[in-house]
């Protein structure tokens, strides 16, 4: 049973008041009896930057998996732009709708150059029959250079991605997200393993990205979350425990108990 199902019958049919970009409704995911998500609901407005926090096993990554089509929920709906039900689409279709994802562990194409990594991510026709092309157009080249400049990797463009440092790989992945130019970015622990300076730069980068894109960031680093200065959602045991400004959430006694500690 989803939460939505026990609501009065009219409640679900009502379209949300303000326009929404992402509308998760009663998402439940079970792995061998373990409820990774327990009728999770979440609403994201267009252009919003949202930080999602929570202890290990709270369901943060599983939520990302559901949004990007990697995991099919047992129940619930995930609407994108009020019209596309993400639970019925596969990963590629969701990516083409305009949802990009950066993984917790940086995954770049290690045997290819930094340049080619971004080239592969570049928005464009993804069909195999259109892929018999060589080099890139002037427009594409300009865009790649621009993105690589943003993440300060332009001088490394001919290196193999596998040879980059951990932080550089994180940035390369962000660069790929930028090149993909999705409407919504899902960023999973972008500052794990970064130095303080890098963390700060990454926060600035995300805020800058947020000017043109909606972003959901999953992160443990509270300094980083505070630096983002956005609305925060705290997950616990597959449900939303608290939601609101960083100050409100971090002062919520339940959040302090399960996550922040005293």
């Amino acid at each position: 049973m989803t939460e939505a199902a026990v609501l009065p019958s009219g409640a679900l049919a009502d379209p949300p008041q303000a326009p929404t970009l992402l509308y998760l409704d009663g998402i439940t995911v079970t792995f061998d009896g373990f409820r990774a998500l327990d009728s999770l609901s979440l609403i994201l407005a267009p252009g919003e930057l949202r930080a999602v926090i929570g202890p290990n096993g709270a369901g943060k990554t599983t939520m990302m998996d559901v949004i990007t089509g990697k995991t099919r929920p047992d129940a619930g709906r995930a609407l994108f732009r009020d019209e596309h039900d993400l639970t019925r689409l596969d990963e590629a279709a969701i990516a083409e709708l305009g949802i990009g994802r950066k993984f917790q562990k940086p995954t770049v194409f290690e045997t290819q150059t930094v340049w080619d990594n971004v080239l592969l991510a570049l928005a464009g026709d993804r069909r195999a029959r259109r892929a018999f092309r060589f080099g890139e157009t002037a427009e594409e080249r300009e865009r790649i250079e621009q993105v690589l400049t943003t993440v300060r990797l332009l001088e490394h463009r001919h290196r193999l991605a596998g040879g980059l440092s951990h932080g550089q790989k994180q940035w390369l992945e962000i660069a790929m997200l930028l090149a993909q130019d999705p409407e919504l970015l899902l960023v999973d622990e972008p500052v794990a393993g970064m130095t303080d300076a890098e963390t700060e730069q990454t926060a600035e980068l995300l805020v800058a990205i947020n000017r043109d894109h909606s972003v959901i960031v999953v992160e443990h680093d509270m300094h980083f979350v505070r630096a983002l200065g956005c609305k925060v959602t705290c997950l616990h045991e597959g449900r939303v425990l608290a939601e609101g400004s960083i100050d409100r959430v971090s002062n919520d006694p339940r959040v302090i108990e399960v996550y922040l500690g005293r």
Binding site: F31, D32, F34, A36, T62, K70, T71
Partner: peptide, 8 residues
Amino acid sequence: PLKGRAVE
């Protein structure tokens, strides 16, 4: 099948 996140 075995299920779960570890498998995937």
